[in-house]
């Protein structure tokens, strides 16, 4: 019962996010807008109800289940992109390797810099 109440809150925030997206033509999905609204609301309220916490935990723990039907589509894709698989694989593998490296190096450097500037304050 309490978990269902939390679920209702999540659904309402999602619907508000979708409504905002449609009205203001925002190119961001209703889910992400709802997530931002949720974080801001919780920051204003200063606490999370048990109902909301348990509902969100339940959904997050099955995140993989929720993306699975979409993922399966890969195996049923028509071979309309034959001849480009090498380019696609290289872009995905090498591209992701480089972007992960970029992120980690940047973050590491920036965390070190901001830690140093805080020490100097």
């Amino acid at each position: 019962m309490s978990m269902l109440r939390g679920f209702l809150i999540l659904v309402l925030f999602f619907l508000i996010g979708e409504a905002l997206r449609l009205v203001f033509l925002i190119p961001v999905s209703g889910g992400v807008l709802g997530m931002i609204l949720m974080t801001l609301t919780l920051m204003l309220r200063g606490k999370v109800s048990d109902a909301l916490a348990s509902a969100s935990q339940a959904l997050i723990s099955v995140l993989v289940l929720l993306i699975m039907p979409g993922v399966v589509g890969v195996f049923f894709m028509a071979s309309q992109f034959s001849g480009q698989w090498l380019a696609v694989s290289a872009a995905l593998l090498l591209g992701t390797f480089l972007s992960v490296l970029t992120t980690l190096l940047l973050m590491k450097q920036m965390v070190r810099l901001s830690a140093r500037s805080r020490a100097n304050d």
Binding site: F7, L10, V11, F13, F14, G17, E18, S29, G30, G31, V32, G34, M35, I36, L37, M38, T39, L42, V48, L52, A53, A55, S56, Q57, L59, I60, V62, L63, L66
Partner: peptide, 9 residues
């Protein structure tokens, strides 16, 4: 959709 909202918690 609601799961994405749940990430706000």
């Amino acid at each position: 959709g609601p799961a994405t909202v749940a990430l706000g918690i």
